[in-house]
Nucleic acid binder design. Structure first.
Lengths: 357, 357
DNA sequence: TCTGTTATTGACAACGTTGTCAGTAGTGCT
DNA sequence: AGCACTACTGACAACGTTGTCAATAACAGA
């Protein structure tokens, strides 16, 4: 439990403290503190002596002590739902870049879609006295556990999914709008039987996209056929089975709207076995979409902007912005590449050239 | 500079401290500390009273104070070269998962391939008194700046690329071996003009892969034709231009070895414009490789194992392992999918069916 | 009853930093 | 010279926690 044996051997190489620097430079600790923090009211000569001492001793201020004294550390917390997702990677990168501009680091953790884990992680970050929190909510989580911290003045920004039971800044992609765009696009190409393949509706974005799908159909005066709707957690096998079921229907869909990245990719894998393919529009862009056969039409969102916007909002709050909680929705962008422009085909797809392998 | 106005309003909602809990429970602070840390020698009744008080006040220990007192915080530092890379994402996820098993969080930052930035980031993490450091070195960086911390007993593990001017634990993919496997595979399919497309050789993995390429050719008794070697930073345009130059040679290559993920993808984009394609083996697997036309043969490495191994090594060190620095090399795995099994074609490629879009 | 032992507890100092405040020296003004 | 003022400096306390150590109670054995 306490493997701190090297304490003795470390005494010799002890890390230099402000005291050490102070005595090395022949000044008081407070003066060193002033120099380190770039405060005014230090004579130029003193400043130089202190800097020299700092360099000689290779002194670095201890952030734990600073954190204790100041009540905060120079870091922001990041709670992700799934760190392996490329979406998360871009989000993190954008947030870190923004944080770095303010001399802060990001403390991050992944909760793997588990609400309890999300809560534990967030609270652990609060215990570390981060300056602010960016949270990608786990499906099914409530967020009132954060209200004491919010009341204390801790800025919290939710990304990609809105908080539940809590009013706080939120940055979202316009999922419903994006879904409407996608389905309208398919409708415009003559499709009337359009299937929906998406994630569990407990995930906010999934629900919104389904809602957009319904709205677009409704607006076109088409009925909602629940046989054409599959909203369940994404795995390659489930998507494959669902697609097979769709195609076995008396009136199979001629087009597919896949409501997120992973679903789209899973659908592509499943469709690779077919010799005719339905039209397809996916939500989320992904690497190599343009090299698929046919190239995949998508409604793209921008994780980078999402992260940047969230971080900016957080720092605005840190700089004193006390206006009411905002909700920002970022627009999506339709990128037609081919798969979404396939016309309807009576057997639920269209024959395409099978690659020679 | 100091927007700490809400100090007054926060006083009312001050975070509870051990003192508060102690007086609430009618015990001494040290007893609360004992309960919080699960130490023995606390009467069961006292323990209950303290726990109740903790729950009532919603007390959470302050990690800055703990860090100050203990000289360490319950976090490990993570220095990445490029956080947007899916490779990094998987690495981070694996390391975080391992850290979580030990109740630690990961403090991470990305240095965007800049050596100075890598140094600053690492030192910032040391200043935060992380328990250990996992570093993906930036190209061109030296690491002797870490030796004082190593001497202090801070465990540091390098991943993906070895440290320069420092002896420390290192976890790598067997790049040279993987490259040899890739090139041998192409040779076995009859290729004699094999081009190399890789990254800047200042990056260790890039150099190793080039070395493996040379070794495999040499072992087959083939000459090294520098016209067929391009080792420079990867961008879509450079790869495209390089490929065009290759194909314009009097004796164009019949096969391509692309030495990393991004190069492979860039090459695929460039090749999409051609009506005949050379054989291709890429280093690194990537999403949808199996759905390309032709499906892409790769030598795969496993970022997850890389991260897990590194984290395990780090925690071994934290638990007192003082053995000399290790260097672990993880094996690669050849995944034949089609593109690597194309036979040589006199015009430097082979006619393939062009997809109908 | 007295002594030794164990179980339980809390007072106190220290970790490294920074805000407060009082002190010193120098300067300009009357 | 006396005064106010500025520029600079450092002693000290405090931030919230935990290791040290001494104190107390309880209890068994003699």
């Amino acid at each position: 439990m306490n493997p701190k044996k090297p304490a003795t051997s470390r005494a010799s190489t002890r890390r230099a403290t402000m005291r050490d620097v102070a005595s090395e430079a022949g000044v008081g600790v407070k003066t060193v503190s002033r120099v380190v923090n770039g405060e005014p009211d230090v004579a130029e000569s003193t400043r130089h002596r202190v800097r020299a001492a700092i360099a000689r001793l290779d002194y670095r201020p201890d952030d734990s002590a600073r954190g204790l004294r100041n009540g905060q550390i120079a870091s922001i917390g990041l709670v992700l739902d799934d760190a392996t997702d490329p979406f998360s990677a871009q989000l993190v990168a954008a947030i870190q870049a923004e944080a770095q501009l303010h001399g802060m680091l990001a403390l991050s953790g992944s909760c793997n879609e588990d609400p309890d884990s999300e809560r534990e992680l967030s609270l652990a970050l609060c215990a570390r006295r981060v300056r602010g929190l960016v949270v990608v909510p786990a499906p099914g989580a409530r967020h009132d556990y954060l209200s004491p911290y919010l009341a204390e003045g801790l800025p919290v920004v939710f990304v990609d999914r809105p908080p539940v039971a809590l009013a706080a800044d939120t940055v979202l992609t316009d999922s419903r709008g994006g879904a409407i765009t996608a389905v309208r696009h398919l409708l415009a190409h003559g499709h009337r039987r359009i299937a929906f393949l998406g994630d569990d509706v407990r995930i906010h974005t999934a629900a919104e996209r389904l809602s957009g799908y319904r709205a677009a159909l409704h607006e076109a005066g088409l009925p909602i056929d629940t046989d054409l709707i599959a909203a369940r957690p994404v795995r390659d096998e489930t998507v494959s089975a669902t697609l097979a079921a769709f195609m076995a229907l008396p009136e199979p869909p001629t087009a597919l709207f896949t409501a997120n990245n992973r679903t789209t990719v899973a659908a592509l894998r499943a469709l690779a076995g077919f010799d005719t393919v339905p039209a397809l529009v996916g939500f989320d862009d992904f690497q190599l979409a343009e090299l698929m056969s046919p190239p995949v039409t998508v409604v793209a969102q921008d994780p980078g902007s999402l992260g940047e916007t969230a971080a900016r909002l957080l720092f605005q709050r840190l700089f004193g912005d006390r206006s009411p909680a905002q909700r920002v929705e970022l627009a999506t962008r339709l990128i037609p590449r081919g798969s979404g422009e396939i016309p309807p085909h009576p057997t639920g797809g269209r024959t395409i050239a099978v690659p020679p392998f």
